[in-house]
Structure formats: structure tokens, C-alpha cells
Amino acid sequence: MNDILNDIKTFEAEAIARLNSVLDKQALDALKIELLGRKGKLADFSKAISKVSDEMRPQIGAAVNRLRKLFEEHIASKEQTFASAVKKQTIDYTLPVRADFLGHKHPLLQTVDDIVDIFKSMGFEIASGPDVETDYYNFDALNTPEDHPARDLSDTFYLKKGVLLRTHTSPVQIRTMEKHKPPVRIIAPGRCYRSDYPDASHSPVFYQCEGLYVDEGVSMADLKGVITAFARTMFGKDIKVRFRPHFFPFTEPSVEYDFSCVICGGKGCRVCKNNGWLEISGAGMVDPEVFRAVGYDSEKYTGYAFGMGVDRITLLRYRIDDIRLLYENDVRFIRQF
């Protein structure tokens, strides 16, 4: 006959849980009838008493009475809570307030902040240089031959002969090395300019971040380490980095570096053109000619340099499909970030 006692126990747990989760008066009333009513569950147990043995009868009777009391207490306390809640509600707390305008940082500059933070944590110092540069800093000192196509009017904005809008942040390398003896380790974010008509993926003004580390014994493996650490901090620990050989006048060996696609994880999608990799930017070991221009001993010192398209990284991380949105400054856009 322990079955009935067990049933009562199970019923008690269920009933209490239901009582606790009741949210309004109406539900409580319904539950009250179900538990304590004449056709309720407790009544069923009472009826069952007549069918059990004599010695069990008092035990079951006591258990049923205890439950009845318990339920009544719970119900009473709930009723009181609901009653007082109705009374206390004197304000319409559902009214939206809209107190103040909300400010937002620009998504591109948020990306710059993140990039700078990551590299600062790796011991990089922030450096900067002017937007308007001489052709010496933008080209000559970076080992770019005089007849290099990048110098053409069709690629570079000129203000007057020999004065131009920097086409990359690399001139900051030269300015920094002219000022400081090695070792140097800098990150240089800033606006750059190229004569590209604006479209979904081009802007005549864009944003780059340059990195440079020169010291004794700096190797390409160090470059790979730093780029990989950046990629994983920025986009997650599963991001892979790959180097492809390339050519730049100011680095040798030169590479382009790719990240495994941050959208599809490398499986292939529209953004990575189904090859699983995203081209990020260029990098390499500083060319001895660049060291010669700043008076560093290229036998003693080696170094790496890398560029980084901040616009592209911003578009990727926020899945933005048109670079012009970054420079249009529509608050409906900026407020999304």
C-alpha cells in the first residue's frame, strides 16, 4: 500500500511546482478547484482511504490532511500577492521613455581601435605621418623606381610637382626610421588616397594600417607569428593565415597574406569567391634599399613590414557590402555599430 503514499508524494511535488509558477488570479482559481475541489485529486485520495488496510488508513489520512493544509496556505499567500500587486500598480511602467540620443563610434574607427589594441598588446608603438607627402617618402625612399606605374597621374593624386597624397601608410616607416635608431616596432594607422572612382569596393580615400619591426635577427617567421596572432585575436582562434609570394618594391621577399574566410570558415562562399581564402594585404621583409635610404645597416638589422586594409577588415567583420557607406556617414548606418 506504499503505492498510494508514493502517489501522494509525487502529486505533492507536481502540485507545488504548479502553484509556484502560477502568474495570475484566474489561473490560480482554476488550479484551486483542481486541487481542492470535490472532484479534485485530493478528494480522490480521500476516497481511496476506504480501500486500504486498517493500519495504513491513519497514515494516508494524515498525509491527505497535511497536503490540504499545505495547498491552502500556498493558495492564500498567492492570492494575497496578486491582490497587492493590483493595488500597488500606480504607474504605467510600460511607457517607453526615449530620454536621450544615443551616440555611436564610427565602425571603421572601432576597427582601428581594435587593431591598435591588438598590436599595442604585442609591443607595437603607434606612429603617424602626414597625409600630404613628398614623392621622396611615398616612393623614392621605398625603392619605387622613377618610372613605376604607381606614380602615374592616373593612380596618385598630386598637389604640385613632387607633392602628393600618400598612396599608402608606408612613408611612416621611413619617417620613423629616420628619427629612431633600431630597434623600432610601430603600427601606423591612417588615411590613404588613390585615384580610384568610388564604387562598391573602391574609394579614393581609404584607410590603411602599417606595421614595421626592425631589430637584429627579425625573420619572416616572426612576421608570420605576428600576422597569425592578429588574425586570431581579430577574427577568432580558428582563423588560418597563408602567405603567397608577391612583389613590392619595398620588401624582399614579399608576400600577400590571406586569412581563411571569416564568413564561411574556409568552406567556400560568395565572399571568398569559393576558394576559402580572403586576400587581406601585403607584407614582407624590409628591402635592403629601404634600409639604405634611412641609414640602417642591412647586414646587422633585418625587419618586417606589413600593410592592412582597415576598410576591408571593417566590411568583412560587419558584413557590409559597399565601402561608400563608410564615408557617407549616414547616422542610420553608424548607429548600427
Binding site: 604585442m122 608603438e125 617567421a221 616572426d222 608570420k224 607569428g225 621577399p253
Partner: peptide, 25 residues
């Protein structure tokens, strides 16, 4: 050196994490 690197395979270059003291000047 670049020829050696590109034919041997840039993927074979390891990632080195060197200790980086501050160079803040």
C-alpha cells in the same frame, strides 16, 4: 632568398612568437 622561399613554400615557414619587450620611445 626570395626564390628559395617561394619555391620551397612559404607554408613551411613556421610562426615564431618572440618575446616582445616594449620599444616605446
Amino acid at each position: 632568398i626570395e626564390e628559395i622561399a617561394r619555391i620551397h613554400g612559404l607554408d613551411k615557414i613556421p610562426e615564431s612568437y618572440r618575446p616582445g619587450g616594449s620599444l616605446l620611445k
